[in-house]
Computed example of a mutant assay.
Amino acid sequence: MPRRRIEHDLSDEDKASFTRVVRISEELSEMLEYTPARLEVLQHARLKYRCKDEAGRSTIRNAWAQPSPLARSNAGPVQLSHVMAACLRDVLQRINYHRQDRQDRLEELLPMNWKPA
């Protein structure tokens, strides 16, 4: 499956607040993205840095990335919207089918020349 990499980096403000910033690793998460007739994996790489301030204290900072729209899921927003639209379409088709079925049964029970007001 094709993969597209998206890097999330610390802002220039965050980097400027430290005297030394060294990239040490990254946290990688994958999200499925659906485009009609195509499915790809978006790799979100949150870059991780070791940062040192003026006093010589070190800390680890990660870049921020937008969370998944659905907790504990790797489905992307477009894929979720397609699933929701398909479910809605199925429900509406079932409602229409049952409505037509009731109308047909009602017409069988009523006299032929009777018309509803």
Rank of each mutant, 00 (worst) to 15 (best):
R94I: 01
A71K: 13
L80P: 00
S81Y: 07
D53I: 09
V78T: 04
S17A: 09
A65W: 06
A71H: 08
A71E: 15
L109W: 04
W64A: 08
Y49G: 03
L39T: 03
H44F: 09
N96M: 13
R94Y: 02
K15T: 01
H8M: 07
L109H: 04
E13K: 12
E107D: 09
R72Y: 06
A37E: 15
L32V: 12
A85L: 15
A45T: 01
G76T: 02
K15Q: 10
H44K: 13
V22G: 00
H8A: 09
E13F: 09
A16Y: 11
E13R: 13
L110Y: 10
T59M: 12
S81E: 15
D104F: 07
D14S: 05
R20D: 09
E40D: 10
L28G: 00
C51R: 07
D90V: 11
V22N: 06
T35E: 11
N74Q: 13
S17I: 01
T59L: 11
R102P: 00
G76V: 02
R50S: 05
H98N: 11
R72W: 06
L39P: 00
R38K: 02
E40H: 12
A86N: 14
P77C: 01
R20H: 09
Q66D: 05
P77R: 09
R72F: 08
I24K: 02
V21F: 05
P36M: 10
M31D: 08
L39S: 02
M1C: 01
R20Y: 06
E7I: 01
K52H: 04
L106I: 02
